[in-house]
Design a protein around this nucleic acid. Structure first.
Lengths: 274, 274
DNA sequence: CCTTGACTCTCCCCCAGGGGGAGGCCGCAG
DNA sequence: CTGCGGCCTCCCCCTGGGGGAGAGTCAAGG
C-alpha cells in the first residue's frame, strides 16, 4: 500500500496482525514454514517483517481448510494461478470425502430410524475353475466405483485387442479389509477363454474351483455403506453354518450396470468357503 | 438373524468382523466406550459377544464421520430416532463449517489468481459519546451473521417495547481476535436516547467519544473472508500514521441490509485510535 | 504330553498441530 | 534501577490411534 516499512515486528504484534498464535508461529519457525526475518543471537527473540504478513495470513487461511502443514509448504512453493490450482486439488479431495460421508449420514439416519431392516437370502453354488485377467490396485472407498468401471473397460479392451471376449461376468475381489477409509488391494477380474499374454498392470491368473455363499442385491443396495450389511449377512451365515472363509470376498457384477434400475438385481456378494 | 450365539469372540475375530483395528478396540475398552463382555482375569484376554458387533460397527461408521469419541459416547446413550437426530445435529455442524470453508477456497482462488486486489480508501471521523444497548456473546464465524441479525432484531424489539427508537446505525464490536475458527466475544450495539432498564442478556453502556479510522465497503466485500482485507487495510493505515488502536475494532451497518445490492456501500470497518 | 506358531497382553514411543504453563531472560518506561 | 510485560525454551497434555518390543497364552499337531 504505502511505503513498506522494513522495521522488524516482534512476534506478539506479528501474531495479532497475522491472526496466528505465538505457539503456531514458533512451530512454523521450527518447521521452516515461516522463518523470522531475523533472530537475535543472544536473546533468541524472533523479529518479522511486514512483508511476511501475507505469507503468514495465507498459512492461517489454509490451516482453516485443515490443510496439513506439509501440504501448505508445497502450496507456498508455487505462485499465483498454480498455487490456486493446488488449493483446488486439495479441496476437491475434501469435497469427495464429504460426499461419501453424506451418504453415510443418510444411511445411519435410515438405519437408526428403524428403516431398511432388510433380510438377505443366502444361497450357495459351485464355481468351476476359470482363467481370468485382472487389474489390482490399492484404492480408497471414494475412488472405488471409478476404479471398477475403469479397470473393467480396460480389461474388455485388452481382450478385444486379442480377439477374445469375456466368458462370464466380471467380478471384484477385495483382498484387503473393507475398512472405513483405507482399502486393501482390490482386484477387478474378468474370466476368459483362449490365450493372452500379461501386459503391464494386467495379470493372468487361474481361479481355482470353489464353493461360495452369496446373496443377491439390487443396484440400490450396492451403494456404500449399505452394501456392508450384505457382507455382514453372508459372513454371519457362514459363521452360523460353522464354515470358514477360504478366500477373499468378492462382488460379481452379472448385470449391465447402466441398463438396470435401482431395484433390479445387480450384483452378488460372495464368500468362498471350505 | 438365526439364534444368536453367546460364544465369546476373540479380539482378533471381533476386529475383523467389526472392521475395527485391535488398537482401536483396546482404546475403546480403556475409554469405556466398548467394553468386552468378559475379560480373562489371569491372561487379560478380551472376549466379545456377537451382539456387540452392532455397537462396534456403529462406532466405526461414526468415526468415519470424524465424530470425536466423546460425542460418539453421547450418541450411543440414545436410541433409535433420537440417536439419528443427534447424528444429524453433528453433521449439520460439519456442513456448516464446510460452507464457510468453501467460500474461503473461492476467495483464495480469486486472490491467488490475481483478482480482487482492491484498494481501500481510509477516512477518519469523530464519534460523539452515545448511550447504547448491546448483546454480547462468544460466537463462531459460521454463526456470526445469524447472531448479528438476531441480536439486532432483539435490540430493536426491546427499544420498541420501551417506546424508543435507535438514534443511529447499529454496530458490532469485536472484543476478541477475529480468529480463524474461534471468535472472542462479539457485541452487537444500538445507540439510543431516552431511558431503559437492562434486562437479561441486554446491557446498557456508554460509548465514550473517540476518533476512528474507517473504510467503507460494499455488501459483497462484507463476505468472509474478504472482509479481513478491509480490516488489514485500516490497521495498516493506522500503523503507517503512527497511531495506536485505542479500542476494539467494529463494523457499522448504516444501510438497510435487505434493500441494497451487492455493490452498494453497506458497512464501515472502523478502528478507534488515539 | 510337549512343542510350535499364531494370538494376545501391556508398555512405550511416535505422528499432527498445537494449548497451557513453569521458570527464566529481555527491554523499555518511569 | 526497578518493575512489568513480553519473550525465550522446555515440558507435559490433548485426540485417535499406529508400530513395535518383550512376554505370556491358546490350540492343534506330532
Amino acid at each position: 500500500m504505502n511505503e513498506v516499512s522494513i522495521l522488524p515486528i516482534s512476534i506478539g504484534e506479528f501474531a495479532r496482525r497475522s491472526r496466528l498464535s505465538l505457539k503456531a508461529l514458533r512451530l512454523y519457525d521450527a518447521m521452516g514454514l515461516l522463518l523470522p526475518a531475523q533472530v537475535d543471537q543472544t536473546s533468541g527473540y524472533r523479529y518479522y517483517l511486514e512483508a511476511q504478513l501475507e505469507r503468514a495470513k495465507l498459512i492461517g487461511l489454509l490451516r482453516q481448510l485443515e490443510m496439513p502443514l506439509s501440504r501448505i509448504a508445497e502450496v507456498l512453493e508455487l505462485h499465483g494461478v498454480e498455487a490456486a490450482q493446488a488449493i483446488a486439488r486439495y479441496w476437491s479431495l475434501v469435497e469427495g470425502d464429504l460426499k461419501t460421508n453424506r451418504k453415510l449420514v443418510h444411511y445411519l439416519e435410515d438405519y437408526l430410524g428403524g428403516k431398511g431392516e432388510s433380510m438377505y437370502e443366502i444361497q450357495t453354488r459351485e464355481v468351476p475353475q476359470q482363467k481370468i485377467v485382472g487389474i489390482q490396485r490399492h484404492v480408497y472407498v471414494k475412488d472405488l466405483s471409478g476404479f471398477i468401471a475403469e479397470a473393467g473397460d480396460e480389461l474388455l479392451k485388452q481382450l478385444a485387442q486379442a480377439g477374445l471376449r469375456g466368458s462370464g461376468p466380471a467380478f471384484v475381489i477385495y483382498h484387503g479389509q473393507i475398512n472405513q477409509d483405507s482399502n486393501g488391494p482390490v482386484e477387478v477380474c474378468l474370466p476368459f477363454e483362449g490365450s493372452l499374454e500379461p501386459t503391464g498392470q494386467i495379470r493372468l491368473r487361474l481361479e481355482l474351483a470353489h464353493h461360495e455363499a452369496f446373496t443377491r442385491i439390487t443396484k440400490a443396495q450396492v451403494e456404500f455403506p449399505g452394501i456392508l450389511k450384505a457382507y455382514d449377512a453372508v459372513e454371519q451365515w457362514l459363521k452360523d453354518q460353522g464354515k470358514g472363509m477360504s478366500d477373499s470376498p468378492r462382488e460379481i457384477y452379472f448385470a449391465r450396470w447402466d441398463k438396470i434400475g435401482p431395484d433390479d438385481p445387480a450384483c452378488d456378494i460372495a464368500f468362498p468357503y471350505a
